[in-house]
Design a binder for these strands. Structure first.
Length: 267
DNA sequence: ATGGCTAACAACGTTAGA
């Protein structure tokens, strides 16, 4: 049995629970990793997920902003909510589970956006983002230590030239500056991760998961960025079956500015 | 590169997203 894992920055899970339900009913992923749930655990719509068959849930939330949650139809054996940069601002949860004879650890991340000014001396949000990525690089080391693992989430960095609509024009814009893209590549190298999305979509093809709310017509201008990612460690590389970017979700009524990404693994 | 939208909240402006 293949295993499917979806990731989606939902930009308020309470506001968009009906969109999430429609997505889950249509796609039935085994596991869904959400970012920017924007609520504390007590306000997470747990019953709505249970009703859809997602009985196993780990929420790492806080009031108002950020927050991640992993919900699963497959039992969760263990979980970890890790704080980064000496603060608990609800940006990570990991679960371990076994699905179809396939044991794995699944990390769900929400990396700081980093503000507007790409200068760590002038902008503490950007400094925080760089420190967070550095801590990821130093923590997620070595495929041997990571074992069979999947890392998903809104990493808020578009690392490759064709992960943005214009490489040249985005070089100075937070999410595509060289210091960020170099750091994200260092996180990948340190863990020995495989970029599952680019495993299936060649690097010379544009690939986006986010389109700004500010565009008058997101589809016509198509100035997107690939901010959401799916990585796997080498033990799972041979099991990769495919990736789907649900671009149509950006056109739904009152959408998130991010769309879901689904990865399928052979069980 | 601008643009100027979207959401939460001890809320009707401020902070945050990216």
């Amino acid at each position: 049995m293949p295993l499917s894992i979806a990731t989606w920055n939902i930009n308020s899970v309470r506001l968009r629970i009906d969109l999430v339900a429609a997505f889950l009913e249509a796609e039935r992923p085994d596991i869904l990793c959400l970012q920017e749930i924007k609520c504390i655990e007590a306000n997470f719509p747990a019953a709505a997920f249970r009703k859809l068959g997602y009985h196993h849930q780990v929420v790492h939330g806080q009031k108002g902003y950020h927050g991640v949650a992993t919900v699963s139809r497959v039992p969760i054996r263990e979980h970890v909510r890790r704080g980064f940069c000496g603060k608990d601002d609800a940006r990570h949860v990991a679960v371990s589970l076994e699905a179809g004879g396939l044991p794995l650890t699944l990390h769900n991340f929400y990396v700081p956006a980093g503000g507007d000014e790409p200068d760590p001396a002038a902008n503490e949000k950007f400094a925080h983002k760089l420190a967070f990525l550095g801590e990821m690089r130093d923590w997620l080391t070595g495929a041997e230590t990571l074992g069979p693992a999947v890392l998903v989430g809104d990493l808020n960095v578009a690392p490759l030239e064709n992960d943005v609509w214009s490489h040249k024009q985005m070089l100075g814009v937070v999410s595509h500056t060289p210091v960020e893209t170099d750091l994200l590549k260092a996180v990948i190298a340190s863990g020995g991760w495989i970029d599952a999305m680019r495993h299936f979509v060649p690097e010379d093809r544009k690939l986006y998961t986010w389109w700004s709310y500010r565009a008058q017509d997101w589809q016509a201008s198509d100035r997107g960025r690939r901010l959401d990612h799916v990585w796997v460690t080498p033990p799972l590389g041979g099991r990769l079956l495919g990736i789907e970017v649900k671009r149509e979700a950006r056109g739904w009524n009152r959408p998130s500015d991010h769309v879901p990404v689904i990865v399928r693994l052979a069980g």
